[in-house]
Design a protein around this nucleic acid. Structure first.
Lengths: 212, 212
DNA sequence: TAGATTGTTAATCGATTAACAATC
DNA sequence: TAGATTGTTAATCGATTAACAATC
């Protein structure tokens, strides 16, 4: 595998979906699959599957197809979930709590080490085993606990401010749920989840399907 | 504007972001903007902005630029948020509650008419003015209240089942937060929010930025 | 009018699909 | 070996960027 080749984001966007389907095949006890079979399950072209995978190496075998388990593991490695990532949540509201309670993230190696909030009434509260701390303790906590990822589940104004602070504290990536762009230096990774944009795309499709 | 032209999904994906930036310009009291100024704010090319907008009509004026307020309104119309949409949530957990509590959706015309759950202890509970009902009342409720959109904030197994049920009940679109594809007939719109895929993309970027 | 900026065509770039030789 | 299916090249399709004439 050529580690330096830059992979297009279109390919990266599809990898987690391959990973999910392969996981389900494993659960179903399937050991091998051809690009053609996977193609019909996932509703993408077999050609695309083979092209995508070959960006990372020849994981298949002619005449046989792909070994489900080993392809699953390879994609896991590519996605960087063959190791753990320490994470904190900023914002102990419903959305922050939803992320903490959703146990699958932890299963994939995303370890939630703490939740921060500025509501003093929440200080010391335990949410699903994770304790709520005040924002002023955050920078130290990030440095001492080797935190790589911060999830921002707070309103946009605070998100912009705290985004800067955690970037300065040295986190590698921000998972941003606030409805704003963060405008941080290029060495800080930002992955946005803009729910309102998703809902507007849905609304667009409603408006334009009905037309025909 | 040519109502029948099919607009590429790449363009649609960008529209809500234009809408957001224009909204902020309005708040800031800005009345006109050129594609060049907007380009540097949004970090996309001016050419792309002009191309995107011209899919829907000539909203600008040579030598002047775009009127912020009227462009905002036009994009709102295109996105179908110039009218209201009735919506229900299935799943009264943290994620469902987060959506109910987030008042911006309501402001944009997405009216949450009810929440459904199968936990009998929640029956009749009021979450932010919206009452929790049991799943067996759902189909009737959807039909009687002209529900267009259903948000699925439940585990994947139930999501697949209830997705079919609400599709049969006649909803136009499903906003799917479950980590699965729904496989419904083509006339039902599905907009997926796969948080775990988003987190894996973030993880990929961490793994591959550190390499250089 | 002169300057600014759009709308739109043409050029480039990138992503997807098709085809098939290589090979298990 | 024969059949199946990959890996990979070539062809096509679509999206983005550049350029500039039209026009406010």
């Amino acid at each position: 595998m050529d580690n330096n080749k830059i992979i297009s984001s279109a390919v990266i966007r599809r990898l987690p979906r391959y990973y999910r389907y392969l996981g389900e095949l494993i659960e179903g006890g399937i050991q091998r699959i051809s690009s053609n079979e996977l193609s019909s399950k996932m509703k993408v072209t077999a050609s695309q599957i083979r092209q995508d995978l070959n960006n990372f190496g020849g994981f298949g075998q002619q005449g046989y197809g792909y070994n489900v388990k080993s392809l699953y593991d390879e994609i896991g490695k590519i996605l960087g979930i063959d190791r753990t990532h320490n994470m904190v949540i900023i914002g102990a509201g419903n959305l922050g709590q939803a992320i903490i309670n959703y146990k699958d993230f932890e299963k994939r190696g995303f370890i939630i080490k703490g939740v921060f909030d500025n509501d003093m009434r929440l200080e010391g509260k335990i949410i699903s085993g994770v304790s709520v701390m005040m924002i002023d303790k955050m920078t130290d906590f990030i440095k001492e606990n080797n935190i790589e990822i911060v999830a921002l589940t707070i309103p946009k104004k605070s998100a912009r401010e705290l985004g800067k602070i955690v970037a300065d504290a040295g986190v590698k990536a921000i998972w941003n749920f606030a409805h704003t762009d963060l405008n941080l230096p290029d060495d800080v990774i930002v992955e946005n989840v803009h729910l309102s944009e998703s809902l507007m795309r849905l609304s667009y499709t409603i408006a334009n399907m009905s037309k025909e």
